[in-house]
Design a protein around this nucleic acid. Structure first.
Length: 597
RNA sequence: CGGGGUGUAGCGCAGUUGGCAGCGCGCUGCGUUUGGGACGCAGAGGUCGGCGGUUCAAGUCCGCCCACCCCGACCA
């Protein structure tokens, strides 16, 4: 490609609204342009890189038996109603009506379509197992798109779906993806770790997320310094340390003026925060058939700990949850700042109340809790004696320093970007949409499903985030839009040798199957070198009068400082050899990993 | 959805007590330059985010709305 013809230009300054390095650089280097919040155009350079990423994904998924297809972006609401996700998913789902006033859905993912195909196409165990995939546009109306291509509303995703006759088959396909995903990320040059994750709206049983670790990431992970256990904070479990067991003491009401927070309360009473109970009030939507009912949730954790809302949502099987307003707290008969499960009215006229208590409180005696009376707390409250729980479960958010639930080691917190995920869906969709097959034994059984996704734009942004310096991007050879940046430094008063040599080299490289971006523009050397650094192709060749005097072309790797002169006769072979070296460096990263259930 | 911020030329920004809409980069033409974002001359480019109000007069003051960004909530 001649740069004089390339549709995109570099920018000297990034738009102010870009913050992350990958976002700034992808915009400045002319890879992407924003159309609206979370909606981007991939310009030609980005499109070439994305195509390379997608071809790596095709390669790896084909290798584990995947068959590529394309499923629609627009779905009729009916299939989403069958699985009830039409009701469970909120404003994140793009809905519209067609001209006949039928409800339609913009695809957020394709389980429904796969399940519809499965029930129509799969009848016998002889047709299983199956692995199908596609690379398709999705729409998720994220409440807060951000960070350039990291978190967008419209995006392209490679997602595969496995269909099996039994759970062993699912395990096999799941493990195949587990390895294939590592291989995909490693071939793109980015380091990732796999962590246990929440299944979220996908439903199902087991899930892993692939996290690219970066301080700019939006997910918080907990990693054990000892055994390497890693989990998203949403699901991370840890060993809670109970205080020494005590005899239950009698309940006692004490005045605690101006103690609306746990910290104030602990200081006022001169007790550790661990000797208090923290009440958090939420309002949850609990799905019931095609509609849902609201419930007031009284969540209680030990005072020195934080509530993990994901765990709460899962315990309640809620579709949505939000903090309760002061008015709602008052309406159920509690007192904000001094609220408590003790002394609540038996039945609230406002909303049904569900009390959910962290399991640690079964081993915690004589905690201080609110008295449901302004400026008063209760001493020596005890679960079971003074109040009852509707649900007792793990509700607490793990934090840095907490003890690993596997080995007791200490957690550290890191930030990461989720670049892929794999889910064991099981029969979540088969059951609701009637995907059955006849097994060997003649019985009708549900198809066992799995789903596996990687966003290609997010992956591109993650690669850009991992590889850059103060001058610009530094693409790995496997993802670079072109392999070579050929810079022509011409002078008007020259005899045309530089132009001729550069144009010939451009032809020869292409004839040798090298991908070249040829900077043939009439620009000063500084502009060209800066643009080459900014765009960040792996190899730069410079053709200038200075080098040509000795019959040489200047050769430089973007990730190295040194330049060297190579004779014109040898330059093509030298470039090919360097490309092979760069590819070998990447290939060395692709290694077998152990499956960590 | 809560909190904070920003909207003035393609990009980055200035615009004072309300009184001619500006600067740098980029862009167009001509000329000079050519190994790390060159220089001269001449140009083009604006519903000052939108609507309404106050005023002789609004980029500037007031109200409402919209868009975009950041933190949180939420989320693949």
């Amino acid at each position: 490609m001649r740069m004089s013809m390339l549709f995109s230009q570099t920018l000297r300054e990034a738009p102010t609204d870009a913050e992350m390095p990958s976002h700034k650089l992808l915009v400045r280097a002319g890879f992407i342009r924003q159309l609206a919040a979370g909606i981007y155009t991939a310009m030609p350079l980005a499109k070439r890189s994305i195509t390379k990423i997608e071809n790596i994904m095709r390669d790896e998924i084909n290798a584990i038996g995947g068959q590529e297809m394309t499923m629609p972006v627009v779905h009729p609401a009916e299939v989403w109603q069958e699985t009830e996700r039409w009701y469970q998913v909120g404003s994140e789902m793009g809905r519209f009506k067609d001209k006949n006033d039928r409800d339609m859905v913009l695809a957020m993912t394709h389980e429904e379509v796969v399940a519809d195909l499965t029930r129509k196409e799969i009848h016998s165990y002889r047709q299983l197992p199956v692995l199908i995939y596609h690379i398709q546009t999705k729409w998720r109306d994220d409440p807060r798109p951000r960070a350039g291509l990291i978190r967008v509303r419209e995006f392209t995703m490679k997602d595969s779906y496995s269909l099996d006759a039994d759970w062993e088959g699912l395990d096999k396909q799941y493990r195949a993806h587990y390895q294939a995903y590592f291989d995909i990320f490693h071939r793109c040059g980015i380091p990732v770790i796999a962590v246990k994750s929440d299944v979220g709206m996908m439903g199902g049983k087991v899930a892993h997320e692939y996290m690219y670790l970066t301080p700019h990431g939006e997910d918080t992970l907990l990693i054990c310094n000892n055994c390497g256990y890693a989990a998203n904070r949403q699901v991370a479990t840890f060993k809670k340390e109970a205080l020494p067991k005590e005899e239950a003491l009698p309940l006692e009401k004490v005045a605690t003026p101006d103690c609306k927070t746990i910290a104030e309360l602990a200081e006022f009473l001169d007790i550790p925060e661990a000797k208090t109970a923290k009440a958090v009030f939420m309002v949850a939507d609990i799905p019931v058939g095609e509609s849902s009912i609201q419930k007031f949730i009284f969540a209680i954790v030990r005072g020195d700990m934080d509530l993990n809302e994901t765990k709460l949502v899962n315990a309640l099987q809620a579709s949505d949850i939000r903090p309760a307003t002061e008015e709602e707290i008052v309406a159920i008969g509690a007192v904000p700042g001094y609220a408590s499960p003790i002394g609540l009215p038996e039945k609230s006229a406002y909303l049904p109340v569900v009390t959910v208590v962290d399991d640690l409180l079964t081993e915690s005696q004589n905690l201080v809790a609110g008295a449901n009376d302004a400026s008063y707390h209760m001493l020596n409250t005890n679960l079971g004696r003074d109040y009852q729980a509707d649900i007792i479960t793990d509700l607490t958010a793990a934090r840095a320093g907490d003890a690993c639930s596997e080995c007791g080691g200490s957690f550290r917190e890191v930030r990461g970007v989720e670049v892929g995920n794999i889910f064991k869906l099981g029969t979540r969709y088969s059951d609701s949409m009637g995907c059955t097959f006849q097994d060997k034994d003649g019985k009708e059984k549900p198809v066992i499903m799995g789903s596996y996704g990687i966003g290609s734009g997010r992956l591109l942004a993650s690669v850009a985030e991992e590889y850059n310096d103060e001058y610009g991007l530094i693409w790995p050879i496997t993802v670079a839009p072109y392999q070579v940046h050929l810079v022509m430094l011409s002078a008007k008063k020259g005899d045309g040798t530089v132009e001729e040599t550069a144009a010939q080299l451009y032809q020869d490289l292409q004839a040798g199957s090298v991908e070249v971006l040829f900077d043939d523009r009439q620009e000063s050397p500084g502009v060209k070198f800066n643009d080459a650094d900014l765009i960040g192709l792996p190899i730069r060749l410079t053709v200038g009068a200075r080098g040509l005097e000795g019959g040489n072309i200047e050769f430089k790797r973007r990730d190295q400082k040194e330049k060297r002169l190579i004779s014109q006769d040898e330059i093509i072979e030298a470039v090919k050899a360097e490309i092979a070296t760069l590819e070998a460096e990447i290939k060395a990263e692709v290694v077998a990993v152990t499956f960590d259930e």
